[in-house]
C-alpha cells in the first residue's frame, strides 16, 4: 500500500494536477478569445500593478477593515505553499528518488508553519459557522474543500510527531496530499490558478480602461 501511494499514485496526482491546471487555464484563455473585448481591456502594466498591490498586506480597504482576517489569510497561504515545498522530509524523498534537492526549512519552523495552516483552517471553519454572510453562502462543498486542505497538514503533523499508528497515518497523509493536488484544478481551490487572471482583468479594467485604481 505504502509503495503504491508513494510511487505510482504520486505520479498520477502530479500529472493530473499539472495537466489539469494547464488544461483549465488553456480552456479559459481559448474561451476568453471568443469575447473580443476581453483582451483589449487588458494591459500587462495594470495587471501587474493590481497583483502587486494586492499581495502587499493592508494595502487596500478590506484588509484595513479586517486586520485579523488579513493576518490569518496571509500567514495561512504563505505557510500552505511553503511548508510542503521546503519540508526536509519531502526533500529527502525527492533526493532519494531523483537525486535533486533544494533549500529546506528547519523542522521546528515547519512544525509551527503546519500549526498555522491548521489554525487557519479552524479560523475559516469558525467563520463559516458563525459569520451570517459566510454561513448563508456555505454548503457541503465548502466544508469538503476545507477538509481537503486541512487533512494533509493534520496527518503530516501527526506523522511527524509519530503520535500514533505511524505507518497508517503516513499513508493517509500521502493520500490526502494527492487528493488535494488532484482537487486543485477541478474545484474552487482553483482560485490558486485563476486569481491571477481575475485580478489582472479587474486591475486592467479599473486601471487601463477606466483610468482609476482597484486598491
Amino acid at each position: 500500500m505504502y509503495e503504491f501511494v508513494s510511487g505510482p499514485l504520486v505520479w498520477i496526482a502530479f500529472i493530473i494536477f499539472i495537466g489539469g491546471s494547464l488544461y483549465k487555464i488553456y480552456n479559459m484563455l481559448s474561451g476568453a478569445k471568443k469575447d473580443i473585448t476581453l483582451f483589449r481591456h487588458m494591459s500587462l502594466k495594470h495587471s501587474l500593478a493590481s497583483l502587486v498591490h494586492w499581495v502587499i498586506p493592508f494595502n487596500n480597504q478590506y484588509m484595513q477593515k479586517r486586520p485579523i482576517f488579513t493576518i490569518v489569510s496571509f500567514a495561512f497561504h504563505i505557510c500552505l505553499i511553503l511548508t510542503p515545498v521546503f519540508l526536509l522530509g519531502h526533500l529527502v524523498l525527492l533526493d532519494e528518488s531523483w537525486n535533486i534537492s533544494w533549500f529546506n526549512i528547519p523542522d521546528k519552523v515547519a512544525d509551527w508553519m503546519t500549526i498555522i495552516v491548521i489554525a487557519g483552517c479552524i479560523f475559516y471553519l469558525y467563520r463559516r459557522l458563525t459569520d451570517p454572510v459566510v454561513k448563508n453562502v456555505t454548503d457541503g462543498s465548502d466544508y469538503l474543500l476545507l477538509a481537503i486542505t486541512a487533512l494533509p497538514f493534520i496527518t503530516g503533523f501527526i506523522a511527524y510527531h509519530q503520535l500514533f499508528a505511524y505507518k497508517t497515518i503516513l499513508i493517509i497523509h500521502i493520500l490526502a496530499g494527492e487528493i488535494m493536488l488532484i482537487a486543485i484544478p477541478f474545484t474552487r481551490l482553483s482560485h490558486m490558478l485563476f486569481f491571477v487572471f481575475t485580478r489582472a482583468l479587474f486591475g486592467s479594467e479599473q486601471g487601463y480602461w477606466k483610468h482609476s485604481k482597484d486598491w
Binding site: D35, R127, D131, V134, S190, H191, F194, T198
Partner: peptide, 17 residues
C-alpha cells in the same frame, strides 16, 4: 458571458468579504 462568468463563479471561495 463566455468564460468570464464561469471563471468568476468557479473562483469565488465564498468568503463574504
Amino acid at each position: 458571458t463566455g468564460v468570464r462568468l464561469q471563471t468568476y463563479v468557479n473562483t469565488c471561495i465564498h468568503c463574504g468579504l
